[in-house]
Simulated scan of single mutants.
Amino acid sequence: MDDLSLKETSRLQEIVEAAKGLDWEKFLSLTDDPFKNLIAMKEQFDDSSAAIAEARDKFDLEVVLKHHEDGTRLIFAKVLFSNKAKAPIILTLHSTSSSPESVISIWTFYQEINFG
């Protein structure tokens, strides 16, 4: 998780823990901006968290940080399961900066589509 701030790293870990625990209310509290479409995000959470919980810690987290020209940061996290037959989960976060006052929002949390 190179280059992530302490707050971003902590938030990412909390999101994964909420997913492992199937805890929608906790997940909901971990976005600083409200979801644009609550129903769609709940569906994403239900599907993705079920896969993460079922894996029982048998997964790796691959994280990429991209800096936007406006100074904000996009955090792309991919949950890679030990069971390669399972499609990875994509989690996208938006962070306003690397400062402790940063606003961090969850943008997406879905299972990657495999067209192969």
Rank of each mutant, 00 (worst) to 15 (best):
residue 98 S to F: 09
residue 83 N to T: 12
residue 75 I to D: 00
residue 52 I to W: 00
residue 50 A to L: 11
residue 75 I to L: 07
residue 79 V to M: 02
residue 63 V to P: 01
residue 78 K to M: 11
residue 16 V to Q: 01
residue 21 G to P: 00
residue 88 P to D: 03
residue 97 S to Q: 06
residue 53 A to F: 01
residue 75 I to Y: 08
residue 59 F to Q: 04
residue 26 K to V: 09
residue 38 L to H: 05
residue 102 S to K: 11
residue 98 S to R: 14
residue 48 S to P: 02
residue 42 K to G: 06
residue 94 H to S: 07
residue 51 A to T: 06
residue 37 N to K: 13
residue 98 S to P: 00
residue 21 G to S: 11
residue 43 E to K: 08
residue 109 F to M: 05
residue 98 S to I: 13
residue 36 K to G: 01
residue 54 E to A: 15
residue 34 P to Q: 09
residue 105 S to G: 04
residue 51 A to C: 09
residue 59 F to K: 10
residue 101 E to W: 13
residue 12 L to K: 05
residue 41 M to Q: 15
residue 89 I to W: 06
residue 7 K to I: 07
residue 111 Q to H: 03
residue 34 P to T: 11
residue 26 K to H: 12
residue 48 S to T: 11
residue 45 F to H: 06
residue 52 I to G: 01
residue 13 Q to R: 12
residue 16 V to G: 01
residue 85 A to T: 04
residue 21 G to A: 14
residue 53 A to N: 09
residue 54 E to P: 00
residue 73 R to F: 00
residue 74 L to V: 10
residue 115 F to V: 13
residue 48 S to R: 10
residue 64 V to M: 07
residue 30 L to P: 00
residue 79 V to H: 00
residue 95 S to P: 01
residue 51 A to K: 15
residue 87 A to M: 06
residue 52 I to Q: 01
residue 8 E to K: 12
residue 42 K to R: 15
residue 60 D to A: 14
residue 57 D to L: 11
residue 81 F to S: 13
residue 90 I to V: 08
residue 86 K to G: 00
residue 18 A to K: 03
residue 43 E to W: 02
residue 93 L to K: 03
residue 13 Q to W: 07
residue 52 I to H: 00
residue 6 L to G: 02
residue 76 F to E: 14
residue 22 L to I: 12
residue 19 A to Q: 03
residue 59 F to P: 00
residue 64 V to E: 13
residue 52 I to V: 12
residue 100 P to K: 15
residue 110 Y to H: 11
residue 19 A to H: 04
residue 103 V to K: 15
residue 59 F to L: 10
residue 9 T to R: 15
residue 33 D to G: 03
residue 59 F to N: 04
residue 94 H to F: 13
residue 113 I to S: 06
residue 67 H to D: 14
residue 36 K to T: 06
residue 58 K to R: 13
residue 48 S to A: 15
residue 3 D to M: 10
residue 90 I to W: 02
residue 25 E to T: 13
residue 84 K to Y: 08
residue 71 G to A: 06
residue 77 A to V: 06
residue 82 S to D: 05
residue 8 E to I: 12
residue 47 D to W: 04
residue 8 E to A: 15
residue 114 N to Y: 04
residue 7 K to P: 00
residue 39 I to F: 07
residue 26 K to L: 12
residue 33 D to F: 12
residue 4 L to C: 02
residue 4 L to E: 01
residue 22 L to K: 09
residue 34 P to R: 13
residue 31 T to D: 02
residue 111 Q to F: 00
residue 94 H to M: 11
residue 17 E to R: 15
residue 26 K to F: 10
residue 89 I to E: 01
residue 3 D to N: 11
residue 108 T to V: 04
residue 99 S to Y: 02
residue 21 G to C: 07
residue 49 S to N: 04
residue 67 H to Q: 14
residue 85 A to L: 11
residue 44 Q to Y: 10
residue 80 L to H: 05
residue 63 V to F: 03
residue 30 L to R: 04
residue 8 E to T: 08
residue 76 F to P: 03
residue 1 M to V: 09
residue 102 S to T: 14
residue 8 E to V: 08
residue 33 D to T: 10
residue 10 S to G: 08
residue 99 S to H: 02
residue 98 S to G: 06
residue 34 P to C: 09
residue 71 G to D: 03
residue 4 L to Q: 03
residue 113 I to A: 07
residue 12 L to R: 05
residue 103 V to F: 12
residue 111 Q to D: 03
residue 85 A to M: 07
residue 114 N to G: 04
residue 73 R to M: 05
residue 21 G to I: 09
residue 49 S to K: 12
residue 27 F to E: 04
residue 17 E to C: 03
residue 94 H to E: 08
residue 54 E to Y: 12
residue 90 I to A: 03
residue 38 L to A: 05
